[in-house]
């Protein structure tokens, strides 16, 4: 499942970059993220609680920054998380791009999400919509935080 989300941040690019690269802080912008801590080497560990209809998931996993180029304003992240109770997992890659436009910064996130295991049988279209919503909230929250700082 591929998504693209954009948000305009009322802040210069360098400031937004710093904000986004502070992964534990940025991750708190994802609704349902309980904890994120650095585990070294550009990797982070965390938990995401999410409810899709009657299905309650607690996804445990890792997040890694797989590429970062501050000059270009681009970064790539990879997240892998698993719910052992339900027997489902998600994998996501996110490509972030920041572009400055007249004092504001445009944030673009292209993400590719895979929902695996039994979880995937609970209506992929519904999951897709939920994931879309989650990513949109994330982008908007990042924009809000960066604007506010």
């Amino acid at each position: 499942m591929k998504f693209t989300h954009t948000a305009t941040v009322a802040a210069p690019r360098a400031k937004v970059w710093a904000q986004v690269m502070d992964v534990p802080a940025a991750a708190r912008c994802v609704p349902g993220v309980a904890s994120v801590r650095a585990s070294g080497n550009g990797k982070y560990q965390g938990t995401l609680a999410v409810q899709v209809g009657p299905v309650r998931l607690v996804l445990d996993g890792d997040l890694a920054i797989t590429a970062r180029d501050e000059t270009a304003g681009t970064a790539s992240l990879r997240a892998e998380a698993k719910d052992s109770r339900v027997g489902g997992a998600i994998h996501a890659t996110m490509n972030l791009a920041l572009a400055e436009k007249g004092g504001e910064t445009e944030l673009r996130i292209d993400s590719d999400l895979a929902v695996m295991g039994r979880l995937g049988e609970f209506g992929q279209p519904v999951i897709k919509r939920k994931a879309d919503q989650l990513m949109r909230d994330f982008a908007e929250c990042l924009a809000r935080q960066a604007s506010a700082r």
């Binding site: 009657p54 299905v55 339900v86 039994r118 049988e121």
Partner: peptide
């Protein structure tokens, strides 16, 4: 159905 799929426990 949801319980059989293991989605509801």
């Amino acid at each position: 159905l949801l319980m059989r799929q293991g989605l509801l426990r």
